[in-house]
Write a protein that binds this DNA or RNA. Sequence first.
DNA 1: AAATTAATTTAGTCTTGCCTAAAAAATATA
DNA 2: TATATTTTTTAGGCAAGACTAAATTAATTT
Lengths: 218, 218
Amino acid sequence: MLSYSEENHLKAIFHLSLNNESGVSTNSIASKMNSKAPSVTEMLKKLSEKNLVVYKKYQGVLLTDFGRKTALSVIRKHRLWEVFLVKKLNFKWDEVHDIAEQLEHIKSEKLTNELDKFLDYPTHDPHGDPIPNPAGFIKYTAKLVLSDLLIGETGKFFGVKDSSSSFLKYLDKREISLGSNIKVLHKEEFDESIQIGLDDTNLSISVKSAANIYVTKL
Amino acid sequence: MLSYSEENHLKAIFHLSLNNESGVSTNSIASKMNSKAPSVTEMLKKLSEKNLVVYKKYQGVLLTDFGRKTALSVIRKHRLWEVFLVKKLNFKWDEVHDIAEQLEHIKSEKLTNELDKFLDYPTHDPHGDPIPNPAGFIKYTAKLVLSDLLIGETGKFFGVKDSSSSFLKYLDKREISLGSNIKVLHKEEFDESIQIGLDDTNLSISVKSAANIYVTKL
DNA sequence: AAATTAATTTAGTCTTGCCTAAAAAATATA
DNA sequence: TATATTTTTTAGGCAAGACTAAATTAATTT
């Protein structure tokens, strides 16, 4: 039975190893976990003992298959609970993260699978991130970003890269919501801002925002 | 912010003080928590520091108003989650306790209240126990037990005293379920067993079982 | 290649929550 | 009431998970 802290470290390593094939550094884990390097070193030893990671001093760390499956089971629960909160309990997508951080540690396979069924087997969470299946398989989609689109092209908004509450609120205020079709009308040379068309309205957003909006080209 | 262990101790004290107006003993708490007396003593000091209990060495312990409210908030969450598991996720009433023990510690008032609304403000959990309201008010009903009924009387089954999994399974097997109307047909002098009528069937149960079945006289 | 800087690990400490064994207080009994 | 028993508390220890400061290893720069 894993502790919350063990599960959280596995999750952090999983997320960091997506960018870093060759091994995740102690410091990057510490910074993601809001902790300090020595705490991470100690935890890596323990996870290594339990065959959840491959760890060699000073060499960075990687998940074993078992570790990866375990991390994905936690992520699966996190994302299913996010769907539950938004779809069933009227939460906004920027309010669910902290609660899902708690719920993801509840231990009951039956609960997870019944929840999945109750939600009608969702494939993505409210931020557009894919939900792993019970076997730990996760379906990634190529991640095209709004700022990658050329003038005249249209994309369907399916997720965000930075899911911080402030960015999500920014999107809500502008009524840019998951599923919208966004057309790139113009790119300003001066400040790189982008004019977009959304339903009947036109608005201007910064490149920084556009780089945070995942789209599928239509 | 209270720890799981603090919340669990408050809950134990709450339940024990229902029978014991004058103060709950260290040993009784330890036995309910599956721990040992010294652990309880230590915790009582801490809870007393935080004004959750009134504790004087060797004198037993009682909840303060604040402690009582806190305990009831945990119990409220426990029972709401039990309703959720049974009503929405197809759990049997004997399967929900351990999961609710985990879920009761999730911290989010909004979550609790939205869950309450989603479940349409249930008044009782799947075992017939009343659910406290958000203000910490709990409505007790006088607890009449099946073995209290006289021959010829009928009661509506609304709860169980001992909600152990084995007893709940026993009831399921005999198709004695919450809400049933049970008529006392006969009491056997020899072994005190009781003949009952349930819908169209008659069956015989022990006094011990009958003393675990809460009913309202019809 | 040596020296400096950065990253990581070790050593030692603290808190929480649990324990056993021993001491002290309260209760029951002869 | 004095003694025995039970209950509770104190004392001291242990494991988990965090930390700071110091030491070590790796990486970078000159």
